[in-house]
């Protein structure tokens, strides 16, 4: 690799995490995590429950202060440029962070203006997004009265209204029906097609396999493996005698994190 290529690779990194740590008392939730994400990459950030996925995404979006290490987003240090970073990213956090006593229409308008859009632009984008997300008929309903799927859709709309460069999505497909999931996937595909970068955590491995170009798997707060799905497949093939057709993302994931004890253990009373 020439020096110019190395410089270009660095320039393309929109998320750079070095030796990231987060402790909660005695518990080390994230333990020296190193991770890079390139522009226009669709990264699936996977891990078993309690692996540190949500803690990592909270630190990357400024919701949680790291105990150690550094985070650079879009080439800027997150701690010293948090306002500018927040202006250029979009987030669907774990709890969705919605002001539920606003109507869908008011919420999108409000979020757009929080990100510096003028009133008319915020209003026209809100209308477009409500239409795209098939929420037009619920635009005047309070978000508190939305179904779970509708809330996920409005949260994604709120995350993209200011046209961010990176999207951080924490379990966007959890509890969403097939119809709503299709709308969300369509939105994400368009975002990637227009040069955006997505950092997504999900337990729905089929969706991750279909949507994501790259995968990173975390366990006990440490990065276990990362790369494109093909690279992961190749790695697993080399380390075992698996046949190619059985190497779904689920199989790769289970191979990497290890089969849980409960698979071999029996419950005498069940």
């Amino acid at each position: 690799m020439t020096l110019a290529e190395v410089a270009k690779a660095f320039a393309d990194w929109v998320v750079e995490v070095n030796d990231l740590r987060r402790e909660f008392g005695q518990l080390v939730a994230v333990d020296g995590l190193n991770l890079q994400v390139r522009r226009a990459q669709f990264l699936g950030f996977l891990g078993p429950n309690g692996a540190g996925k949500s803690t990592t995404i909270k630190m990357l979006t400024g919701l949680l202060r790291p105990s150690g290490g550094s985070i650079r987003i879009l080439g800027m240090d997150l701690e010293s440029n948090s306002v500018e970073v927040k202006r250029r990213i979009g987030v669907v956090p774990e709890g969705l962070a919605l002001f539920e006593r606003l109507t869908g229409n008011q919420l999108l308008n409000f979020v757009g203006r929080m990100y510096g859009l003028d009133r008319d632009t915020a209003a026209s984008r809100a209308a477009e997004l409500l239409d795209f997300m098939e929420l037009s008929s619920a635009a005047e309903q309070l978000v508190a009265d939305y179904s779970h799927g509708m809330k996920k859709k409005i949260a994604l709309a709120a995350a993209v209204i200011h046209r961010p460069e990176i999207l951080f999505l924490d379990e966007p497909f959890e509890g969403v029906d097939a119809v709503a999931a299709r709308t969300l996937k369509e939105m994400l595909s368009r975002f990637i097609a227009h040069g955006g970068t997505i950092f997504l955590t999900s337990h729905v491995l089929e969706v991750v396999e279909r949507l994501c170009s790259h995968i990173a798997i975390i366990q006990n707060g440490k990065l276990v493996v990362s790369g494109s799905i093909e690279e992961l497949r190749a790695g697993v093939r080399l380390s075992s005698d698996s046949n190619e057709s059985a190497l779904t993302l689920e199989n790769i994931f289970l191979r990497v994190v290890g089969v849980p004890k409960s698979d071999s253990q029996e419950l005498s009373w069940l």
Partner: peptide, 16 residues
């Protein structure tokens, strides 16, 4: 008091 989970939105937003 009444922001509920919307409180996180303040922290995620680029407003000081």
């Amino acid at each position: 008091w009444s922001d509920a989970t919307g409180f996180q939105r303040w922290l995620l937003s680029p407003i000081p």
